[in-house]
Write a protein that binds this DNA or RNA. Structure first.
Length: 212
DNA sequence: GGGGGGATTCGG
DNA sequence: CGAATCCCCCCG
């Protein structure tokens, strides 16, 4: 057999139909593709709708978050802190808000182009370790908001090379959620591939209870 | 119409 | 730790 690597297929919409917290861990080890630049999704976070105080959609639809209400498979891109773009895979039924934030990729190909876009980054494992970093590396900007990730003709797509998601992903609280989000800040809606090289920030050590 | 805060990142 | 810098929310 050839050494060209496993065949890449598109992702079925059925994978994305559920709630964000159910869909998120199933996106681990899929590929995010923009032209020649390809990265493996190794860290994600789930964001819901009206019941998730940490979600952009908590207070309903706005111009910014409109894509979150779209059909599953749409790309939701927003500008964070006026500087960095962040990419989400929209999930759940059309009309309901739900999305999975892609927080880190392991670079697979197009690494030279990624480095060019991220002039500061040197090491491969930092290239796409963070939601803003990976968008910069892949060239995903606001113009990509609303893209259909399941359409092979799109500039940005999701792909599956046959690597299954981990049976036991790392699980933790979402990053950067302020106290104003209330109990939603403690939801264990962050997931990652154990042992992945590119993780945006460490997960707290599991296996011990706090001293409460 | 104004002010505060953010799903971030980098440099000092 | 603070700056960069835009969108959105809430209050008046």
């Amino acid at each position: 057999m050839g050494v060209g690597g496993p065949q890449r297929t598109t992702v079925d919409e059925a994978l994305l139909r559920g709630d964000a917290s159910d869909v998120a861990p199933r996106l681990l080890n899929l590929l995010l593709v923009h032209g020649q630049e390809v990265g493996r999704i190794v860290e994600v976070e789930a964001y819901g709708g009206a019941r998730d105080a940490a979600s952009h959609a908590y207070r309903g639809r706005t111009r910014r978050n409109a894509s979150m209400f779209g059909p599953p498979g749409v790309l939701y891109v927003y500008l964070s802190y006026g500087l960095h773009h962040c990419a989400n895979v929209v999930c759940g039924a059309e009309g309901t808000a739900g999305a999975v934030l892609v927080r880190a990729l392991d670079p697979v190909s197009g690494i030279d182009a990624m480095r060019r876009r991220r002039s500061g980054a040197t090491s491969k494992e930092r290239l796409c370790a963070g939601p803003g970093r990976l968008c910069a590396a892949l060239g995903i900007g606001g113009d990509c908001d609303g893209t259909d990730l399941l359409d092979v003709r799109s500039a940005v797509t999701l792909a599956d090379d046959g690597t299954a998601p981990p049976l036991e992903p790392l699980v933790g609280e979402r990053v950067g959620i302020g106290l104003r989000a209330g109990p939603a800040a403690r939801l264990q809606w962050r997931f990652a591939v154990p042992g992945a090289r590119s993780i945006s920030r460490p997960f707290p050590r599991a296996g011990r209870d706090p001293l409460s």
